[in-house]
Amino acid sequence: MYKFVHTVGQYVLLMRRVFTRPQRGKIFWNHLFDEFQHLGLESLGIVAIISTFMGAVVAIQTAFNIDSPLISMSMVGFTTAQSVILEFSPTVISLILAGKVGSRIASEIGTMRVTEQIDALEIMGVNSANYLIFPKVVACLLINPVLIVISIWLGVLGGWIAMEASGLVTTTDYLYGIRIDFDPYIVFYALIKTVFFAYIIATVAGYYGYVTEGGALEVGQASTKAVVYSSILIILFNLILTQILLT
């Protein structure tokens, strides 16, 4: 219990140092573009593969489960689109990103901590928390929604490809299904969730990296902790946000 309160307190104090104005605008922008590259572009591949296959599997399973002739096959398109937008893309892909991006952030910052690079920044008079963590948070907040939108497209596309290939559902039915009762609000809902999750991933990983003490072994532990705790928080906030936004 004491440890929990201590961790939360330390996290809040760190965030107060993170969310300040960068000392040098130009350096911040350069950093931000680097992070787009490292945290965004480099995640594109895994996001694309997982989303496409996920959409395909959802579509196939739905198609097989419809055995009543009373239910139109266009329900496959409907179900695939709804589940990809509501849950699979924002939540599952965010969990994947917590693993990929979170461990990267924690190990990068943790290594800088144990090799005294953070001390070196502090000695020069640089606010190391802001300098290191802020660009990563901003990058995640901006790039994760883009990744999720791409993931949604690819998920729906994956379902369509699977239906075409297997001949289970015709293209017309599938596309018609996607548009049944389509409410743009659910995309908005997906993006709100994504932004929350992005914040969790970047700040939790930044925190565990920043407070690392020791050596290479502890850096590994910090990155594991970052992944575990950000995943738990994502699942928890998924429940809370779903309650708030959909009821």
Partner: peptide
């Protein structure tokens, strides 16, 4: 701090 220079035990270069 801007008047201080420090050399760390392990160098602490930004890698």
């Amino acid at each position: 701090r801007q008047e201080i220079g420090m050399l760390f035990q392990m160098g602490a270069l930004f890698d």
